[in-house]
């Protein structure tokens, strides 16, 4: 991803900024210009608190070149406490530690680089809540 595209998405990547439809209450991450549930265009900003649970996961063994060094790594669909879902890596764990509905929290990490000389792209990954 090049710098202009990356920079545009900083509110979502860095701060998990989402939006809530004022008409039907559906939370969108990332924000949209029109609610897919009720067609409303009236939204309020919400921040995802960064806690959720694992709905399903996989362990990527054959990775795209950019992620080769990290393989095998866990990717999960996480349902955030606010009800919205997202896809992210789950790190700092063995894949055997994953479980259905395992509680996770989001941490700020490096996600990828196009190449050694290109910008470092940050965002959120999940870690298992251990307490």
């Amino acid at each position: 991803m090049k710098s202009p595209q990356y920079t545009r998405e900083i509110p979502q990547r860095y701060r998990l900024e989402a939006q809530k439809c004022k008409q039907c209450g559906k939370i969108h991450f990332p924000p949209r210009l029109i609610c897919d549930a009720c067609q409303s265009r009236d939204f309020e900003d919400v921040h995802l608190a960064g806690k959720g649970r694992v709905l399903t996961w996989t362990v990527i063994h054959v990775a795209p070149a950019k992620f080769d060094l990290e393989a095998p790594y866990v990717i999960a669909i996480v349902e955030m406490e606010e009800g919205v879902r997202l896809t992210c890596q789950v790190v700092d764990c063995n894949p055997e530690e994953l479980a259905l509905n395992a509680p996770v929290e989001m941490v700020f990490r490096r996600i990828q680089e196009d190449g050694q000389a290109d910008i470092i792209q940050y965002g959120h990954k999940a870690v298992l809540q251990r307490e």
């Binding site: 991803m1 991450f29 990332p30 996989t58 992620f67 990290e70 990717i75 997202l86």
Partner: peptide, 28 residues
């Protein structure tokens, strides 16, 4: 890079960004 090319069929900004592949999505 076939894995990366095929992955363009998923959401680049909110799925593929995190390193998911097509086999990975179907594995989910």
């Amino acid at each position: 890079d076939v894995t990366a090319a095929l992955a363009t069929a998923a959401d680049q900004e909110y799925e593929v960004y995190h390193g998911v592949t097509f086999p990975g999505l179907y594995a989910l």
